[in-house]
Simulated scan of single mutants.
Amino acid sequence: MNSQAPPFEHPFKIRLERGTVLPLVWLALGSAALAEIAARSVPAAIVLDLQHGLWERGSIEAAAGIAGVCTSVIARTADFSAPAVGAALDAGVAAVMAPLVESADDARVLAGASRYPPQGRRSGGGVRPLLAGADSMLAVNRHVAVGAMIETALGAQNAEAICAVAGIDFIFVGTGDLQLSMPDASPGQLKACCARIRDIAHQQGLPCGLFTSDAVAARQAFAEGYELAVVANDIGLAARGFADAMQAARS
């Protein structure tokens, strides 16, 4: 089988290495059509939420193929296991980030699941990887970006060890789960915890992202030194759009 280019056209890893600020759009509703619309408007990247979103295997493949022509596609995987990570990468996404990474061992499992041998233990297969050919499949090891989500008190405690694991390319702080795992923490304490994770990541030469609720919060995160932040999510946009339309009709 002839080898072709990697199955994505916008390698996210290159953008990370350049230190560029990367606004993200977070998609949970499982619509490939909406992913295409978002991709045409977002020069940085879109995130397909495979953990809590409504995505199914066919819609993931469709969204990655269509949106990947326009922008980088990241998959927030269901977990950091080999089946979850491998299925997302088989769709042709440019990056994965796995939730609830709480230790160096977790991070090593994630890194190994994200790359083919000899660097990792990713299984060969999938429609797009096989179409690209064996040489391209091996080349993907150099292009795929792997992110560890630190989003629990235990993960924050082990941030130094997580960030030191070879094969992790960026860190992403999940603020919602972090708050749930630290119910007695004040807003200031939570912010300080996130900042500590960011600083540890930077000390290891890793970009750090922050889950934010809207563009205003994302702009603040960028000002505070985070390289990635969520400027919009499809659930929030839909809810606000319907509410605004109803309000406009009544006024």
Results as ranks from 00 to 15, higher is better:
70 C>N: 14
162 I>G: 09
63 A>P: 10
196 R>N: 13
127 V>L: 15
221 A>T: 01
173 V>W: 01
231 V>L: 05
38 A>E: 06
73 V>E: 02
141 N>L: 02
52 H>D: 05
151 E>N: 01
239 A>L: 09
202 H>F: 09
2 N>H: 11
198 R>H: 04
46 I>M: 04
172 F>Q: 00
131 L>P: 03
250 R>C: 13
237 L>V: 10
13 K>I: 06
46 I>G: 03
124 G>L: 15
103 S>P: 10
134 A>C: 09
212 T>V: 01
7 P>W: 15
143 H>S: 14
89 L>R: 08
227 E>R: 14
198 R>D: 02
112 G>M: 14
88 A>P: 00
109 V>G: 05
168 I>C: 12
98 A>T: 11
62 A>T: 12
119 Q>T: 12
109 V>Q: 05
140 V>H: 12
79 D>Y: 04
209 G>Q: 03
33 A>D: 15
196 R>H: 11
232 A>I: 09
145 A>S: 14
179 Q>I: 14
42 V>E: 13
178 L>K: 04
166 A>I: 15
2 N>F: 12
19 G>K: 02
101 V>C: 01
50 L>R: 14
23 P>Q: 02
165 V>N: 10
243 A>V: 08
23 P>S: 08
110 L>F: 09
45 A>L: 10
5 A>L: 11
189 Q>W: 00
105 D>P: 08
75 A>R: 07
243 A>N: 05
180 L>Q: 10
250 R>A: 11
73 V>W: 02
80 F>R: 08
247 Q>P: 02
56 E>Y: 08
124 G>F: 15
200 I>P: 02
249 A>M: 14
100 L>W: 11
97 M>C: 04
143 H>W: 12
140 V>N: 13
182 M>N: 06
205 G>E: 05
234 D>N: 01
136 S>Q: 10
244 D>R: 14
190 L>N: 07
57 R>S: 07
216 V>Q: 06
235 I>S: 12
205 G>N: 09
47 V>S: 03
150 I>V: 15
195 A>W: 00
187 P>L: 13
207 P>W: 07
73 V>F: 00
185 A>M: 00
134 A>E: 06
108 R>L: 06
50 L>C: 15
101 V>N: 02
85 V>T: 00
217 A>W: 02
98 A>K: 00
132 A>E: 05
90 D>P: 06
247 Q>I: 15
120 G>T: 11
23 P>M: 04
87 A>R: 10
173 V>G: 06
147 G>F: 06
133 G>H: 10
120 G>I: 10
185 A>R: 03
81 S>E: 09
118 P>M: 08
158 N>E: 13
171 I>D: 04
209 G>D: 01
67 A>C: 05
137 M>E: 14
10 H>I: 11
237 L>G: 05
209 G>V: 03
42 V>I: 15
48 L>M: 14
95 A>V: 03
32 A>D: 14
190 L>S: 07
212 T>D: 01
212 T>K: 09
42 V>Y: 08
9 E>W: 12
172 F>T: 03
75 A>M: 13
132 A>I: 13
181 S>F: 01
53 G>H: 06
113 A>G: 04
81 S>I: 07
32 A>P: 12
192 A>C: 00
151 E>I: 01
